[in-house]
Nucleic acid binder design. Structure first.
Lengths: 215, 215
DNA sequence: TGTACATCAGTGAACGCGCGTTCACTGATGTAC
DNA sequence: TGTACATCAGTGAACGCGCGTTCACTGATGTAC
């Protein structure tokens, strides 16, 4: 029952204005990401983050009202970067592209998304924190929802389809499975990154071929 | 870097022997599951669990060396229940079943797995905790690995295929995506449970039809 | 170009609280006789 | 069937520590003149 928690303030407080402050702000985020890897969500604390960032705790509180807000900022930045990869990828197709061209590019899309998530220190840990920590769930779900709707609309326009419920469901499922495959690939438990990405891409391709065949 | 953490003892200590003790033990697990929902991984503590279970903290320490061990027991029980659903599902097919029969049952499999995970209080939170908390990751990955290998072997036997790398990869991907779809369905952010399950099942079916076509 | 000063950034010290963990202990259970 | 007693189960009290958060403050920055 999510409602049993009191709601948590997630937005940052003061924005950093001076140069020094911007460095401090970035320092806080970088330290938090490192600590997410080293000690985990269950042990990360404002005290640890401030110490790692080389500032005192009240300095952290100047920018963030609590530790969830730090994690939220970290998650939002990663979601933005992932979504930018998706937008760039889609934009490469010309307006007369056919479905098979897009399908051939799925592998590339998943790979690039892996890359951008791996480049962010603690990328995997951030993604899993967004799943596991209640006040942050909304961030990931809303982000995926937005990308899925945009994706559905783009497919409809490109291929001249109706933007109906079944297309929206397919778009949402593809986005969600795509990002799940990316996490799986980075986590590494199910085989090498390249293997997981190519097998995941194949699954998504076959899914859309099935949809194409039934139209 | 996971290696930066000291390793954590996860196995239970004393097994409960008397009747009263068994009740206490189950009480601890139930309380932990409830608290995982109410306060989350980042705030759950042995103090809270003991209080909720109506015992003092040292009584908890009689059975579990630390809070990770409680979460581990919770996770192991859920993995076992999920895997039992899978085994039961597969066993229903006679030894002369054809691929299409299995594919037609995927929807049912995912739905039953959802059910068993939803029945467990805090089921979703347990699954996401297994992803996000480093010392527990191995439990989930090993469990999925075992199911995938068993699944690959069963498919090979049933359909008379070679149990080669490509079959093993396909089996692993199916298991991993299957469980990811189940989490997605229970989480509810991507549509109704029935929608997500049926769309996820369709994806897995189309994936295997693709594999069948290429053999 | 120099500097006064308003605003921004960060500090030091303190608070009460809940955390994990351990100890020597009392009380409950169940079984051997 | 009754009970002595070994073993199992749970308690009460205590510990030092790190947690989140706030306060009144000093110091740094940058710009208006």
């Amino acid at each position: 029952m999510a409602g049993a928690r009191e709601s948590v303030e997630l937005v940052a407080k003061n924005r950093p204005r001076q140069e020094r402050a911007k460095r401090t702000y970035e320092n806080i985020l970088r330290s938090a990401a490192e600590l997410l890897v080293e000690v985990g969500v269950e042990r990360i604390s404002t005290n640890l983050i401030a110490e790692r960032a080389g500032i005192t705790v009240p300095a952290l509180y100047r920018y963030f009202p609590n530790k969830y807000s730090v994690l939220h900022a970290l998650g939002a930045a990663l979601m933005d970067r992932q979504n930018a990869v998706f937008a760039d990828w889609f934009d490469q197709f010309s307006s007369d592209a056919v479905a098979e061209e897009l399908l051939a590019g799925v592998d590339d899309l998943l790979y690039r998304t892996c890359e951008v998530s791996r480049e962010q220190p603690g990328g995997l840990e951030i993604l899993q924190t967004l799943r596991a920590v209640e006040p942050l769930r909304k961030l990931r779900l809303d982000s995926h929802e937005r990308v899925a709707q945009q994706f559905g609309a783009q497919v409809a326009r490109l291929l001249g389809w109706d933007l109906d419920d079944s297309l929206l469901r397919a778009a949402r499922m593809s986005i969600e499975v795509g990002y799940a495959v990316v996490e799986m690939a980075i986590e590494g438990g199910a085989g090498s990154e390249a293997d997981v990405v190519s097998e995941g891409a194949r699954m998504i391709q076959l899914y859309w071929r099935g949809i194409l065949a039934s139209r």
